[in-house]
Design a protein around this nucleic acid. Structure first.
Lengths: 148, 148
DNA sequence: GTAGCTGAGTTCGAAAAACGAACGCAAGGG
DNA sequence: CCCTTGCGTTCGTTTTTCGAACTCAGCTAC
């Protein structure tokens, strides 16, 4: 009764952290942002056990991060998992991970994929900024105030 | 030999995702960014089992996200866990989670804490931008290219 | 119609991870 | 000394995860 309690705390950081902090969930989202949509493809590319995959997909469906969308293949109706608006809005989280990974975990080898801005071809970077003055912020620039 | 393999893939997204995607790790980082530094405080505030806490702290030490820093208390030497530069640079990841949480999971109740820019008092927001033109990017603005 | 194939799960026994209460231990303090 | 405190470690139990086999629905071919 402990890990789960973070998922229901009135804290806008602990709730997402508890949801995405469950094993496989971040890697599953990565795969989805890379274009995977079908149960079988998740299972084979990630080597996750089928039962856990079922569970994680269901949690993300319940949370409204994913939706099941019917489509036709070989004349039969199947379903694929796609991001909702809420799910697509997790992009900054994944990009923040990648930006950090590039800076601090970059292996000598090449990347497995590249990202660039469709319009201008530039690179992609996550950052934190002030909603008022627009300055880029680090942890040290931010004051934490507990609510009374 | 499966979840662990993501931690050693030559991919700057899968490696951080595997590291932070282990249960408790994101919540532990949240607690650290909120100022907790000592074993006992993590254990009591998070209700995590002591053995798992030991393990997670050790992994973060090994990865260079945390460091053990000696300090004096009541005339005796103790150690506390503090963020390294590498660890502090995870701030955008946490802020991206929080930005998402505020938009999509905000409970009716109040937040448990507030964040604001020390210099101007403004709010804090994570975003993704183009390194060339500076435009704010969503998943749809970004092209994924697999490496040959 | 029936045998086979395929994608998408479900089931279930074994292995791994997490839990939590008790124990160990070093460094003061009384 | 004996007590307390902070920080782990141990260990038996419970919960998750694993992975191989099974199910099932909807076609396709015969």
């Amino acid at each position: 009764m402990s890990y789960a309690s973070f998922a229901s705390m009135p804290c806008t950081l602990s709730r997402p952290a508890a949801l995405l902090g469950e094993r496989w969930t971040l890697l599953l989202l990565r795969q989805i942002f890379l274009g995977t949509r079908r149960f079988e493809d998740f299972q084979t590319t990630m080597e996750i056990s089928r039962s856990v995959l079922t569970d994680r997909l269901n949690v993300l469906l319940q949370e409204g991060v994913l939706k099941r969308v019917p489509y036709q293949e070989d004349g039969r109706t199947r379903h694929e998992y796609r991001l909702t608006d809420k799910g697509r809005d997790l992009y900054p989280v994944l990009m923040a991970l990648r930006t950090w990974g590039e800076r601090w975990m970059a292996p000598e080898e090449e990347e497995s994929f590249h990202l660039h801005h469709r319009d201008c071809g530039g690179g992609v970077r996550a950052k934190v900024e002030c909603t008022d003055c627009g300055a880029e912020l680090t942890a040290r620039d931010v004051q934490v105030t507990a609510r009374s």
